[in-house]
Nucleic acid binder design. Structure first.
Length: 289
DNA sequence: TACCCTTTGAAGGTG
DNA sequence: CACCTTCAAAGGGTA
């Protein structure tokens, strides 16, 4: 769980970051690569069509009839326009839109021989074609992604980048037990474990624990927590309010990051065995501070 | 190796 | 609504 930064706007607590690594990452790499290649091919094909289509529109805008557009390429082999490498594409492609900054756009060189085309008309035509190009690329490429089974997500899952500290990969938290048989159970096991947000006392404990360890020279967490519990009660309302406020922000952030998360999701993730210690045993441990 | 211990508070379930 | 259960952190201790 990202903690509200003690150092300012950094919401991550480095000491709590748990490296997330998909178990099947290594094995899946070749498939991912080939899928990416396939997507690249699809994308480039889409771009080809878009280039050609809007290139023609541009020339029509300039007054070139379709049947004479290939002559335009021959007359203006300037590098801005390149012939399609594909047989059957009689026209041209804009090879590099970065060339819009080239001097060709400012000196009217694109104008077909024998025609008077102003720089203004030329620029507007190219800008229109470029704008339509980008919009259409997005639309068509989105269609290709969707049609090829890709499910776009407007909000990326947290584990795709730096994993949220509240998330522990299911492989780490796997509990021993009989193997589940249903697909639903397997799905549940694969789900990353999202931890509960820290409450006010937990935040206080995390901050004060090192001090207690240093002061009392104890390492047992049970003893340390007893001391911290006593100190917590000795805090003033104002001092406690600081941690309650922090905890409230934690819960708010957690609910924003994981709107569908429920505390019930974590039930059964830890197996508990109740073992009651005698009071005399506890008193013997409370020897410090 | 996995759980216990110990604390407080939040959340969810139950009667 | 009251009560119960579980889980957050921590790390030495224990079965």
């Amino acid at each position: 769980m990202p903690q509200l930064g003690r150092d300012g706007d950094d919401l991550g607590a480095n000491d709590e970051l748990i490296a997330f690594k998909d178990e099947g990452e290594q094995e899946e790499k070749p498939n991912v690569s080939s899928e990416r290649d396939l997507d690249d091919v699809k994308s480039s094909l889409v771009n080809e069509y878009i280039y050609i289509f809007f290139g023609q529109i541009f020339l029509l805008f300039q007054g070139y009839p379709i049947q004479k557009q290939h002559l335009f390429f021959k007359e203006h082999d300037t590098g801005l326009f390149q012939p399609s490498p594909y047989v059957g594409y009689p026209f041209f492609m804009i090879s590099d839109l970065g060339n819009l900054c080239s001097p060709y756009l400012t000196n009217g060189a694109l104008a077909p021989t024998g025609r008077t085309v102003s720089q203004h008309q030329t620029l507007i035509g190219i800008l229109m074609a470029t704008l339509l190009h980008y919009v259409s690329c997005l639309v068509v490429f989105y269609y290709f992604l969707v049609s090829s089974g890709f499910s776009p997500r407007l909000v990326p899952p947290p584990q795709t980048s730096v994993p949220h500290p509240a998330i522990v990969p299911a492989s780490v938290k796997q509990e021993p037990g009989p193997p589940s048989t249903s697909e639903h159970d397997q799905e549940e096991e694969r789900k990353p474990h999202i931890k509960k947000p820290l409450n006010a006392f937990m935040l206080y404990m995390r901050e004060e624990r090192p001090k207690v360890v240093a002061q009392c020279k104890v390492k047992e967490s049970a003893t340390i927590n007893q001391i911290l519990g006593q100190r917590w009660h000795s805090l003033s309302k104002e001092e406690q309010a600081k941690y309650y406020d922090l905890a409230r922000k934690e819960r708010l952030l957690h609910s924003k990051l994981y709107p569908n998360w429920s505390a019930r999701d974590n039930y059964g993730k830890k197996k508990k065995r109740k073992r009651v210690k005698s009071e005399t045993q506890l008193e013997g441990e409370m020897t410090c501070c």
